[in-house]
Every structure is written in structure tokens, then in C-alpha cells.
Amino acid sequence: MAREVSTGRKAVVTAIAWGIGLLIFFPILWTVLTSFKTEGEAINPHPSFLFFDWTLENYHTVNERSDYLGHFWNSVVIALGSTLLGLLIAIPAAWSMAFVPGKRTKDLLMWMLSTKMMPAVGVLVPIYLLARDTGLLDSKTGLVIVLTLVNLPIIVWMLYTYFKEIPGEILEAARMDGASLGAEILYVLTPMAVPGIASTLLLNVILAWNESFWTLNLTAANSAPLTAFIASYSSPEGLFYAKLSAASTMAIAPILILGWFSQKQLVRGLTFGAVK
């Protein structure tokens, strides 16, 4: 039972929490606001918070200067493609580890996680050369493969923790009812694990969307996703703040909205189910 708290105390807590929340959010808010300013207004030494001439001009300019939709599409393909491919490989693996655990299951999970600990930079050169020699450099296919492998341990681990919560008796019941292994996974396990699979999907789309090491090092013009699109704005100085803001807003908006709508699944996914 939650206890009654005095209104005064609640007001103070509310004020502090909102203050800190807005402070943390401020860089993003400021970027969004700046994206609607003129370039002159953007570098005004006495910046105005809300009372400036709102304009959409920056968004037009950014779209003219660079192919936002093209990069956006690359991001979607890479993030979704690598996540779906990862799920396809990880669901059977997680089924095995959750429902037919052996003595080495724990070790296997730890080993998978440890591949995630290997610094990407340690294998940058070989991957770069392999991609170059197989013609996968600067291709969406290449990035989908690399990001699938990069995030596979996390996908397996997350699914494993979700599957662990499904009582094994239900799968045994399916087996008694005459379901083959495929039917058991397709008709019983997967539908029951939909919330878990959804939050795994979500977290990995976000991770893949924001992944910046491989996407920056393995792409050039053709398959560059939004991470690379935004990096191309890193050189211009002062006069381009408003355009930079518009580009940034467009790069982060899709994932920000997706993340906000699915907060609950996100939190659950983030902890690998280790914290409830």
C-alpha cells in the first residue's frame, strides 16, 4: 500500500524532478528549437528561447542538399534487417538454452556475451578487408550481416531470459498433444513470447539504428545510414547551426518517438531481464 504523502512534499519532489528532467532533456529540446530558427538567430549571442521567427527553411535546405530519405531508408533496412535476421537465428538457440539446458548452458551464454566485449577496433581491419574483397563494402547487405553478428549475443541473451519465464510444462503439453518441434515453436512458444520478442526487436532496432562504429567505417556514399549522414555535418562551423539542428532532429526523431511509445518493453529489454 502506498502511503499518503503530504501535498507540500509532493510539490517539492515534483519541482525537483521536473527541473532535473528538463535539464537532462534540454540539449535535445534546444536542438529542436534551433532547427526552427534562421541561421542568424541560431548564433545570436543573446539566444531567445521561444520568441523568434519560426521557420521551416532549414528542413527544406537539408533535404535539398542531401538525400535524407535515402539515408533514412538505409537506416531502416539496416536496423530492421539485422534485427530480424538476428531473431531468426536466436529464437531456436534461445529455445535450446531455456528449455533443454545442459551443464554448459551458463558458460555458453557467458561466452556469447564475451564476444560482445571484444573491442570492434580489434577486428576492424580484417572485417574491412573481407568486406572490400567480397564487394560488401558500402553495401546494405554487408552492414546487415555485420550488425546481426554484433547484436546476436544480446538478442540471444534477451530471448533466453524471456523464454525462461514460460513454464516448460506448456511445451511438454504441446509435445503430448502431438506437436512436432517446429509446431511447438511456431504455435505455442512464439505466440506466448510475443511481448518478449517485441521488446527484443525494439531494443535491437534502437541499438542498430544508433550503431556508429561499423556504419561509419564500412560505408561511403551508397549505403550510408543516418549516422553517416549526420557525421557529414560535423565540419561546417557557426553559420550552419540551424541546418545542423534540422538534420539532427530528423535523424533522431524516428527512434525517439519509437522509444517513447514503447518505454515499458524498452526498460525490460535493457536489463536483459536481470532486473524486474
Partner: peptide
């Protein structure tokens, strides 16, 4: 929601 936001922003941005 305000506090979560920075996590969703890509590092380069």
C-alpha cells in the same frame, strides 16, 4: 520520458 531521451539519440548527433 524526458530522462530516457538521451539514450535514444545516436552518438554522432
Amino acid at each position: 520520458i524526458l530522462v530516457i531521451a538521451p539514450f535514444l539519440v545516436m552518438p554522432s548527433v
